[in-house]
Every structure is written in C-alpha cells, then in structure tokens.
C-alpha cells in the first residue's frame, strides 16, 4: 500500500480541475447560509456526511473492483482487465447517477472525473483506466486512481471524504476572504468526522460484491437545490 499515493490523490495541487468547483458553497454563500467560520463548519459537516459519504463508498468500491481483478499498483505492460471490470465500474457509475439527483451535480462530478482520468492515466498508467467511461463520475475515477496508484479501498474512501470537505473549504475561504488559518483549523476539527465517514463507507464497500445497495446513499435536498440554482447563474466564479 502506498501512503504517498493517498497523499497525492487528496492533494489539491493534483491538476484534476477541482479548484474551479466549490462543492455548492458558492451558492450557499449567495443564499446567506454560509457567512462565517461557524456556518462554514456546519455546511462542511453536512456535506461530508452526505455527498462525502456517498463518494467515499463509491470510490472504495471502484478501487476494490480493480484490485480484485488485476491487483493495484504497477501492472505488467500489456496487461488487460477482464470485461467484468468495465461492467462493474459501469454499474458503480450508474449507482453514482442514482445517488446524485441534481443534474448540475451529476455534470460537475463527471467533469471532475474526466479531469482526474486525464491526469491519473498519465501519472499512474494502468489498464483499468481503459475500463472507465470517457466521463466517469469523480468518485468512480478516484477509486480507479487509488487502485492504479497502489492505494487500498479504505484510502480511496478517505481521499473522497477528505476532498468533499477540502474543496468547499478552500472555495469559501476565497469567496468570503476568511482567515485561512481559521479555515485550516475548522477542517482539522472536522477530520475525526471525515475518518468516521470514510471508515463506514469503506466497510460497506468491503461487503460481498454485488451488494451495491449497501453503499452509502445519503441525500441532501438543500444541496441539490443550491446546485440547480447555481448552474443557472451567469455571475459565478465556480463551475459548481
């Protein structure tokens, strides 16, 4: 297992397009729901528990699918993945659709999945990349990236849960000109929750394959509504 791979996947410096997405916080700020560090903490906690939990489960499951079929990390040149992997990843992609009621959020997820696919394929060459759709959901691409980079399903879940917090935290810091040290402290205080959500999602994904209905499926109608309002605006800094 590569700890460095996990750090790279969770690093906002990884050029996968995440910096242009606010995870809904831009609209939450416009709606007056997030105004200061306290309301930001509330938003992040809510997001980690819903979108973060769903993403963590899907990422762990995708990582496990690849790991079971071909093993993670460096794979011999010319190695292929069995067709069952593409089918399983397509199933997970459909599960992501089903768990993401907002069309705007589905589009944002696929946009970020495509970005991760672009950088991941070059950074960690692996035959499993070819088993993904061209615009996969971000969580599914993240699971494949974790497998290709030699990380475990639990790591994929941790990265997904962490990113569901770090993206909007940074966006809010920029939009509200918050003290970055205060925001760093908020995210540090939330890390036990991130660990808990990631752990639960990884355990759900470790169940017998086929148990897709065991993966987290929390929904948040408010975040869905905010995403739909946001995408219709012309005056926005962030893509989502």
């Amino acid at each position: 297992m590569s700890l460095t791979a996990l750090l790279a996947l969770a690093d906002s410096r990884l050029p996968a397009g995440g910096h242009a997405h606010s995870g809904g916080v831009e609209q939450a700020i416009s709606a007056g729901l997030v105004t200061d560090p306290v309301s930001l903490a509330g938003f992040l906690r809510r997001r980690v528990g819903t979108a973060g939990s769903v993403a963590a489960g899907l990422a762990a499951a995708a990582c496990a699918v690849v790991g079971r079929a071909v093993g993670g990390g460096a794979v011999a040149a010319g190695a292929a993945v069995p067709p069952s992997v593409a089918a399983a990843l397509a199933d997970l992609d459909a599960e992501a659709d089903a768990r993401t009621p907002s069309p705007a959020q589905r589009a944002a997820s696929r946009q970020q999945g495509r970005g991760l696919l672009r950088v991941g394929r070059r950074a960690w060459p692996h035959p499993a990349w070819d088993a993904l759709p061209t615009q996969p959901h971000h969580a599914v691409a993240l699971g494949v990236a974790a497998a290709a980079a030699g990380a475990r399903p639990a790591d994929a879940a941790a990265a997904a849960a962490y990113l569901s917090m770090s993206g909007p935290a940074t966006a809010a810091q920029r939009l509200l000109a918050l003290d970055p040290i205060t925001v760093a402290a908020v995210t540090a205080r939330l890390s036990p929750l991130v660990d808990e959500v990631a752990g639960a999602a990884a355990r759900a994904a470790a169940g017998p394959f086929g148990g897709l209905d065991l993966l987290p499926a929390s929904a948040d109608p408010l975040l869905d509504l905010l995403a739909e309002l946001h995408v219709s605006r012309k005056d926005r800094f962030f893509a989502s």
Binding site: R13, A16, G18, H19, S22, G115
Partner: peptide, 21 residues
C-alpha cells in the same frame, strides 16, 4: 467560457483541466 474559481491564474497555469476540456 470556463469558470476559474476566483483564480484566473490557476486555470491557465497550475491546473489547466477546465481549459483543456
């Protein structure tokens, strides 16, 4: 048109994903 997340500079130099798309 692409959105640059308050960072026009990042979008053309550090993380060019949205522009490549």
């Amino acid at each position: 048109a692409v959105q640059t997340g308050c960072c026009p500079h990042t979008a053309i130099r550090d993380d060019i994903t949205a522009n490549l798309d």
